[in-house]
Amino acid sequence: MKRLWKVCLAAWLLILGSVMGGVLLEPLQVRAAQAKKIQVQFQYTRRKEFRLSAGQIRQGDTGKVTLKGKNVTDVRWTSSKPSIVTVDDTGKVTAKHTGTAVLTAKYTWKKRAYCYRVNIQVVSRLAAEQKKFPTGTYWNDGGNNNQVTQRPCIHDDDRYCAYNSVGCESNLYLGMVAGMQVAGYQCHGFALKVAQDLYGSLKKWKYVESYRTIHAGDVIRINNNSHTIIVTKVYSGSIQYADCNSTGDCQIQWGKTMSRQALRKAFTYMYTKY
């Protein structure tokens, strides 16, 4: 009985160690050293852009998982929650909805069957955008509007810069919005850049000059055509929004709020997908 207890304990410790290391090997008799020879590589090209951790992917994006190891054959991938993440036999990963799923690779190693499991977390597009452009940083990296800095802007004729793309302290957005070519800098450029990251092309959006129902994602010009915000959440009596340069130095801020009454009073025009 004592010997049987020791065998069971050893088996349990092997399973526990494998799970904690991110690997679950089957059958149990495989040597622990084999786990070190098999690795999963998760390739997601935009992870650095959105400052995501390993194993995270933005909702709506795709990546690829690859099982690497000598003498590994017959790899087949499955997802524990296809409603969150799907994966095909080639390892292509598609992030459907926010949440976490376990991807399992069933494979053959030296003519024996095993499996390897890895967690994938899908992050909402808004959460990824907030990681990409953190509150308190500055949207003024010059030629790359996907980057931020830790230094405030010193504005020097930004309107000229917006149309000439040289010598400008703030970042610049250039693109088709509501069927028009738009050059946006400071607050206006930032709001349009965030909208494009969240929803894709803005070419077919609408330009609206009269106040109407407000939706998350709307880019709204306010305060006598002097400032632009992007709506992130809508409540019964207020909105939550993000903006840039409200302090006059290109600083990014998320989670700001405004009452609907104040928004109606400040409204100039907006771009909307609705």
Rank of each mutant, 00 (worst) to 15 (best):
Met1Lys: 03
Met1Val: 05
Lys2Ala: 15
Trp5Pro: 04
Trp5Gln: 13
Lys6Phe: 03
Leu9Ala: 14
Ala10Leu: 12
Ala11Ser: 13
Leu13Gly: 07
Leu14Lys: 10
Gly21Thr: 05
Leu24Asp: 05
Leu25Pro: 01
Glu26Gln: 07
Arg31His: 08
Ala32Glu: 12
Ala32Gln: 08
Gln34Gly: 05
Gln39Arg: 01
Gln39Lys: 09
Val40Pro: 00
Val40Asp: 06
Gln41Tyr: 05
Gln41Ala: 12
Phe42Pro: 08
Gln43Val: 09
Arg47Met: 13
Lys48Cys: 08
Arg51Val: 13
Gly55Glu: 08
Gln59Ala: 06
Lys64His: 15
Lys68Tyr: 06
Gly69Thr: 04
Asn71Ile: 00
Val75Trp: 04
Val75Phe: 09
Arg76Glu: 14
Lys81Ala: 15
Pro82Cys: 12
Ser83Gly: 14
Asp88Ala: 12
Asp89Trp: 01
Thr90Gly: 07
Thr94Ala: 10
Thr94Phe: 11
Thr94His: 08
Ala95Ile: 00
Ala95Thr: 03
Lys96Asn: 12
Thr98Gly: 10
Ala101Ser: 09
Val102Glu: 14
Leu103Ser: 03
Thr104Val: 11
Lys106Thr: 12
Tyr107Arg: 02
Trp109Gln: 03
Trp109Val: 01
Ala113Ile: 05
Tyr114Gly: 11
Arg117Ile: 07
Arg117Asp: 14
Arg117Lys: 11
Asn119Ser: 15
Gln121Gly: 07
Gln121Thr: 15
Val122Asn: 03
Ser124Arg: 00
Ala127Glu: 15
Ala127Thr: 06
Gln130Arg: 08
Gln130Ala: 06
Lys131Ile: 02
Lys131Ala: 14
Lys132Gln: 10
Asn140Arg: 01
Gly142Ala: 12
Gly142Cys: 08
Asn146Thr: 00
Thr149Arg: 04
Thr149Gly: 05
Gln150Val: 04
Arg151Thr: 13
Pro152Ser: 08
Asp156His: 11
Asp158Gln: 09
Arg159Tyr: 14
Glu169Leu: 03
Asn171Tyr: 00
Leu174Ser: 09
Val177Pro: 01
Gln181Asp: 15
Val182Asn: 01
Ala183Leu: 10
Tyr185Lys: 00
Cys187Ala: 08
Cys187Pro: 00
His188Glu: 13
Gly189Gln: 07
Phe190Gln: 06
Ala191His: 02
Ala191Leu: 03
Leu192Gly: 04
Leu192Pro: 00
Val194His: 07
Val194Tyr: 13
Leu198Gln: 10
Ser201Val: 06
Leu202Arg: 00
Leu202Asn: 04
Lys204Phe: 06
Lys204Ile: 06
Tyr207Cys: 08
Ser210Ala: 11
Arg212Asn: 14
Thr213Glu: 14
His215Arg: 07
His215Cys: 07
Asp218Leu: 09
Val219Tyr: 02
Ile220Gln: 05
Ile222Ser: 07
Asn223Phe: 14
Ile230Lys: 05
Ile230Tyr: 05
Val231Trp: 02
Tyr235Met: 12
Ser236Glu: 15
Ser236Leu: 11
Ser238Thr: 02
Gln240Thr: 12
Tyr241Asn: 11
Asp243Gln: 09
Cys244Lys: 00
Thr247Cys: 11
Thr247Ala: 14
Gln251Ala: 14
Gln253Phe: 06
Trp254Ala: 09
Trp254Phe: 14
Lys256Gly: 04
Thr257Pro: 03
Ala262Arg: 04
Leu263Asn: 04
Phe267Ile: 02
Phe267Lys: 02
Thr268Gln: 09
Tyr269Arg: 04
